[in-house]
Every structure is written in C-alpha cells, then in structure tokens.
Write a protein that binds this DNA or RNA. Structure first.
Length: 571
RNA sequence: GCCCCCAUAGCUCAGUGGAUAGAGCGCUGCCCUCCGGAGGCAGAAGCGUAGGUUCGAGUCCUACUGGGGGUACCA
C-alpha cells in the first residue's frame, strides 16, 4: 500500500492540474506539496497548506485557491470529506468505513505491513560499527551500531535491497600494541619474567580479556609460542577479538554481510592509485606546511621533511589536508577516499555511513576527494552522531579503551537487556548528545519506555491467548462495530509507511522509537476501555474487537522488529 | 583563532516554514486491581539573548552567550 501522505499529495496534484486545465487556477509550477496532520484533531486527519504558499505566485487569495483545488479534487475511497478553511488550508477527513476495513489489510500484510515502494529495485549499503578489533565494543560504538542497523531495517522496509558492511583496519600501531600486549600476557601466564608496562603506558592494553586470550592460547599450544614474534600474537588476538565483537553484536540482533579490510586497498594498489589520480588532477603539493601559511612560517619550517598535501581548498574546504605524512606513509584520508571509490564502484544507489562526531571533518574531506575524482557524492549520506555520555549516580563515567576500565557493550547488555539497550540508544536524534543513565537502564520499571511499549504487544498477545483458551473466534467479525477510539488507533498505525518514508529520506532513526512510544500511548488507555471479554459485551462486539486487536498485534510486532527489539508474548 | 553539532516544561528529549508547541520521568490529586498493574484519569509547568527574512518562525539568516566535538605525523 502506498503511504497516506503520498496518496493525498497525489490527489492535490491531480486537482491542481484539473483546476488549471479548467481555467479556475492560473498556470504555475506547484512547489513541493506538504501534507501534514493538522494541529488539532477536530480539523481533520490530513491538512494541506500549499494554497498559502502559492498565493503570491498565483496572484489569488489563498482561500480562493484552496476552494478551486477542492472543487476539482478527484474522489478517493479513503477520503470522507474535504473542506477549504480560512486562511487557506485544505483539511481532509478519512473515511471511517475505509479505516475499519484497514484492519483486515493490516492482518493480511502481516510482517510486511508499512512496507513502501520508495526504494524498490534499488540497492543500499549501510556501513556501521567499523571498530578496529583492538578491544571489545564500548558504549560509544554501540550508538552507531544501533543507529546503523535500524537504518538498514528502515531502508529494507522502504523497499531497498540492503547490505550491511563493517570496515576495519588490522594493520597499524594499535593492532601492533594489541599483539605485543597479548605476548606479554602469554609469557606472564607461563610464569616468565616479563616486565608489565605501567598503567599509563599507551602501548599496553590492560583489559582482562587479554589475560583470557592468553589462557586460551596456552590451552591450545601450551608453551610452544614462547619465541614467536608479536605478529603471531596479533593475528591470534585479532581473530579472537572479532569473534567477541560479532557475538556481542549478535546479542543485539546485528549481523553484518560484509567485513571489508582496509588493508586490501593497499594490496590492490587502490590507495596509491588514488594518490596518483589526485596528483594528475593537480591537487597534490609537497611542503612542510600548508601553502597558505605566511612566508615566515614557511621559512621557519623549511628544514622539516615535506609531506604531501591535498589542496582540498580548491573544492571548498576551509584548509588543505595532509594525505602523505613526512615519513612517506598515508594518513587515514587516502585509504578512506580509496574505500569510498570502491564502494561507489560496487553500484549501490545509496551509501549510508554512520560515524561519530569526531569524524565530522574527515568525511567532508573524503567527499572533497571523491568530488575531485569524479565520484558521485550525491549517493553518499553520512549520519554523524554526537557522543554518548555515561551517567552513573548522576555523574559522568569516564571511558578509556586502553585502560580497560570502560563500560563495554556486553556489560551494559548484561546489566539491562538487549531491548533496553536498543531502545535507549535509538530514542534520540543523532545530532543530540545522548546521556545514557545506567541507573535508569538497570531499573526494570515503567521509567523505562521499552517496557511500556513491549507491554502493549504483550497485552495484544494476551487477548489472543485468552480467545484461544475460550475457544472464541473472530470469524465473520463485523468491523463496523468498532468505535472512535479504535479508529484513532488505526489511523496512527496507518502512518507507519509515512514514518518509514520520512526516516529514510532524512536518515533519522529516532523517529521510529517515538512512533512506537506514541502508539503505546494510544494503546494502553484504549485497552483499559475497549475490552473484548467481560460483562455486558456481546459476542458481535467481542468478535470485532478481537479482530481489531489481532491487527494491533501485527502492528506492534512490526514496529518492534523495525527497532530490532524482541516480541515476547509474556513479560 | 577557524570549522561542525547542540540550547524547547524541574529533568531527559520530540517537533516536515503553517492553525492553540508535544511525550516520558518527576511533582499534585483521584480511579481501578479486570484479556497478567510494568495500568487508567486530571492538573501545574517551557522555545538561551538581540536583530532580520516571510502573509506566517521553535523551525530559515546574522550576531552574541553557554555546552560538546574537530583542527597532519591516533583512526
């Protein structure tokens, strides 16, 4: 089914064209049609404010335009009434009969309910998490994990074929430190006389997990690795670490389709090809400092070995960027550009990138690079997330990967639940900072909205179970017996398609969390009043309501699974 | 210094240039205890400051104030 917003917008478009053809409206290009629910329910279900916007363009009073549009509006089965009201709004009212009939549509569509055709026939890729395997995932990474996976789920619901990708680098200094740290732990476990670096030594990973790895390694090979080089330990640690990371992600229902190793871009020569291409475009220069620096700064640094700079300012950047360090090795920018060229070459229609706020500048530089090399950056969308701050006892908890005293995602899941973690990290706009209150998340009470939402689903399941026990069927239900409260709930359910469209167009995953909360807020008061079984409720009404709650059950299951949350029948 | 993000109710946050700005928690008072109470009803309370654009601004622009992030040789 098409979204209701689109359906209404279609009516407006046709009406304007018809009014123009009939000479009731002058010819003008209709600007983007915005349909919204009106401010108050009494005004109707959908409202169009376009007549106000085009008044000047058309040279007519807004209300006259609105009336002309209404006059030519084609009939539609979902519309029960339309009126043009001052100062120039057009208000639509949905047909109650049509709404009631949607209960059956919802049940028929089942887990596909809300699916739209926006991305039909298109391929999208979402790249997220992308943490190097130097340690377990921590809270900072988990926000991107949830946002990325939810974005992927929403894109799937929008009709896209979606691939989830994890980009990682297993070379570099940090991985070497991981290898040497495991080597030290291994030798320690064997009782060898090794010096353990001080806690503030940046080259040593203090985390308990490396002691566990060392024990596992001894169980496998005993003391045979005493004289092995650090590279072997690095490889072992990396493999173990990826296993842990994948297990953690799986606990919160995240599985990637592709793991892309940055190193392959060096092996294929793509990194150096990228540099050559930028050089060929005349956008690389060799210098100790930026060429924009004043002469005295240049002179001061003239003795330093030169680096290679990307003249990104030529493409609109605020300053040039180093792409090759003065030791001859690339900065992260070069492989990043090569990686995105690779992604573009794989033929996706949409590339979504989920990054932390610390990468905000970096992704812009990558885009300048792609632009310089003719890449189609309109296909790339980056979600920049502000940081997560952990709060315990009302105070911020400091995190540090290397010292090992940070909160891991696994710890958090253990303390709360996968569902609570998913919801709390989702229910906030990506460009707002997120305070994760550990005390609140640990509390299993209604303070935590995840329970309120899931409880709505549980209640629908409870009704269906009760019907089963009583042997009561909803066969031949007469949906015309449903009341106003049920209709209001159905209306909200039917906006799921619009939510999915908007979320995927604006790349905002928090919307679905608020939608779920809204739905639960409508559900619980209704549940209290609209009962299926009880004194004075006759069988006809009970059948209609049972059918209705069956539909509600489908909707909650769908919404929860879009958020990657579980759907327990009991709590 | 320069660049990016943020500022809405006591707290945490929604809000697509449209009509009387919403929710959760907390607070105050009440109801129910029934398809599993992790429930329901009602109430008090708000757009950082100053300009500008617009028929119309929480939303767009400028400045300011406050908080966060970034600013080659960590990714």
């Amino acid at each position: 089914m098409d979204s209701l917003l689109n359906a209404h917008a279609g009516l407006i478009h046709r009406a304007v064209a018809a009014a123009q053809a009939a000479g009731d409206l002058p010819t003008f290009e209709l600007p983007a049609v915005e349909i919204k629910p009106p401010a108050r329910a009494e005004m109707g279900d959908y409202a169009y404010a376009g007549a106000l916007a085009v008044a000047k363009l058309a040279g007519m009073k807004p209300l006259d335009i609105a009336q002309a549009i209404v006059k030519h509006l084609p009939a539609a089965e979902f519309v029960a009434g339309v009126e043009a009201v001052p100062p120039g709004f057009i208000n639509f009212r949905l047909s109650a009969d049509w709404l009631r009939a949607q209960v059956d549509t919802i049940i028929t569509e089942g887990d596909a309910f809300g699916t739209i055709s926006l991305g039909a026939g298109k391929r999208a890729q979402v790249e997220f998490v992308s943490a190097n395997p130097t340690g377990p995932l921590h809270i900072g990474r988990s926000r991107g994990a949830i946002v990325g996976d939810t974005m992927a789920r929403l894109l799937e619901a929008a009709g896209y074929a979606v691939e989830r990708e994890y980009y990682f680098n297993n070379a570099g200094m940090q991985m070497k430190h991981l290898g040497t740290s495991l080597q030290i732990r291994y030798l320690q476990q064997l009782g060898a006389d090794v010096v353990q670096p001080a806690p503030d030594d940046g080259t040593f990973y203090q985390g308990e997990y490396l002691i566990d790895f060392a024990k596992d390694l001894i169980a496998e090979v005993g003391g045979a690795w005493r004289d092995r080089p650090w590279e072997d330990f690095k490889e072992y640690a990396e493999k173990k670490m990826f296993g842990i990371i994948r297990d953690t992600l799986k606990r919160i229902s995240i599985e990637h389709d592709v793991f892309f190793n940055e190193n392959s871009l060096y092996e294929s020569g793509a990194v150096w090809d990228t540099l050559k291409a930028l050089e060929a475009a005349g956008l690389i220069y060799e210098s100790a400092v930026r060429e924009s620096e004043p002469d005295d700064v240049k002179a001061e640094n003239a003795h330093l070995p030169p680096a290679k700079w990307f003249r990104s300012t030529a493409l609109g950047d605020v300053e040039d960027r180093v792409v090759l360090k003065n030791d001859g090795s690339p900065t992260y920018t070069l492989p990043d550009i090569a990686y995105h060229l690779n992604k573009l070459a794989r033929g996706f229609d949409l590339l979504v990138n989920v990054l932390g706020a610390d990468h905000d500048t970096e992704h812009k530089v990558v885009k300048y690079g792609l632009k310089a090399l003719g890449g189609d950056i309109s296909k790339i969308h980056v979600i920049i997330m502000q940081f997560v701050r952990l709060i315990r006892d009302g105070k911020e908890v400091k995190m540090s990967t290397r010292r090992g005293n940070y909160e891991t995602l696994d710890d958090l899941i253990d303390q709360t639940s996968p569902d609570a973690v998913r919801y709390m990290l989702l229910a906030r706009s990506a460009n707002s900072r997120l305070d994760f209150d550990l005390d609140l998340a640990v509390k299993q009470s209604s303070d935590n909205p995840v329970y309120y939402i899931q409880y709505a689903y549980v209640r629908t399941a409870g009704i269906l179970r009760e019907a089963d026990v009583r042997g009561f069927s909803d066969a031949d239900a007469d949906l015309s017996l449903l009341g106003g409260e049920e209709l209001a709930f159905i209306k909200r359910c039917l906006t799921l398609g619009d939510e999915i469209a908007l979320s995927t167009q604006t790349f905002e995953t928090h919307r679905i969390a608020f939608f779920a909360q809204d739905l639960a807020n409508l559900f619980h008061p209704m549940y209290d009043r609209v009962r299926v079984f009880g004194e004075g409720i006759d069988d006809d009404i009970a059948r209609a309501r049972l059918r209705f709650y069956k539909g509600a059950n489908v909707v909650f299951r769908r919404v929860l699974s879009l958020m990657g949350m579980s759907t327990p029948d009991r709590m």
